[in-house]
């Protein structure tokens, strides 16, 4: 499929044609030179079965978010270390956000729908793509080039994609925006706080989960929201979570670390509060979370 066809499909916003579209071809149009860095014509590609060859030991993160394909481009300059541009096609914008948010330390928007620059590494997400521009060790020329490349890549992506709809259900007051996470794999349940081993909430590819940290110091807590395909699954997860996280108790419980937890199910959604200072905080946070609300 040529550039024109790819662009037409993306701009039109219609369903993908029957043959798989090579959406990464878009990025062949990245500039040949940026800040004196020249693009190496040899681009590399990695699929689900070969991602391990490029990302030693960390491919599972991407696979857990439904990774499709990776394009790697390199920019070189005689007096500087090379810059790598990695463009991950995650298939869905929600999963691109999920991968991006996994490493979110601060909230910026210098490129795409959300970005972060951290000591020589610039990451952003837009639509179904997660992009990482790595320019280690940090230098002023490499930093300028990293921003220029990220913005150029973002411009090539013709539209923005939806964020996970469940994010809208995280109450805004007190929420630390950089703590927000989205996931469809149980391993990420423990992101801000060790909730449990195993998978007591029954999180899987067909569930959506978000979480966020609220407050600070002793008054802090974490809210986890999970949406299931149907109420039956949610009920099963409620029972399992009560056993696995709340020690079989119906109400807020004090956990071995002295912090409190509780959960509430409404329809096909569950709200879980962990790392709260006391029972009252759990009850109030669950009331605010309103997992069955109409939003």
């Amino acid at each position: 499929m040529g550039f024109l066809n790819v662009a037409l499909w993306l701009f039109a916003g219609t369903a993908a044609p029957s043959a798989p579209a090579d959406v990464l071809l878009l990025f062949e149009r990245l500039p040949a030179t940026v800040e004196g860095f020249r693009r190496d014509p040899a681009a590399e590609r990695f699929g689900r079965d070969t991602l391990f060859e490029h990302i030693d030991g960390h491919a599972e993160l991407f696979l857990s978010f439904g990774f499709r394909e990776l394009l790697v481009l390199r920019y070189e300059r005689a007096d500087e270390a090379a810059i790598d541009v990695e463009i991950y096609d995650m298939g869905r914008s929600q999963d691109a956000f999920g991968v991006f948010a996994h490493g979110m330390e601060r909230v910026e928007r210098e490129a795409g729908q959300g970005s972060q620059y951290l000591s020589g590494m610039l990451t952003f997400w837009k639509d179904r793509f997660f992009v990482a521009v790595t320019a280690y060790p940090e230098s002023e020329p490499r930093k300028r080039a990293a921003y220029a490349l990220a913005r150029a890549a973002a411009r090539l992506i013709p539209r923005e994609g939806p964020r996970p709809s469940l994010l809208a259900r995280l109450p805004k007051p007190g929420l630390a925006p950089e703590s927000v996470r989205y996931f469809r794999h149980p391993v990420w349940l423990n992101s801000p706080y060790r909730v449990s081993d195993g998978n007591p909430l029954g999180i899987g590819p067909d569930t959506e989960a978000v979480l966020g940290r609220y407050g600070s110091g002793e008054g802090r807590h974490v809210l986890v929201l999970v949406e299931y395909p149907d109420e039956k699954r949610a009920k099963q997860a409620e029972a399992s979570a009560q056993e696995g996280i709340l020690d079989g108790q119906p109400g807020p419980v004090r956990r071995p670390d002295g912090r409190f937890a509780g959960l509430r199910r409404a329809g096909r959604r569950i709200a879980l509060i962990v790392d709260a200072p006391d029972e009252t905080s759990v009850r109030e946070a669950l009331a605010r979370a309103a997992p069955g609300g109409s939003r």
């Binding site: 960390h58 020589g120 990482a132 790595t134 060790p137």
Partner: peptide
């Protein structure tokens, strides 16, 4: 601490 696709940042 790990951030980024390769889990590395010199920071």
């Amino acid at each position: 601490h790990s951030v980024g696709p390769h889990g590395f940042n010199p920071e």
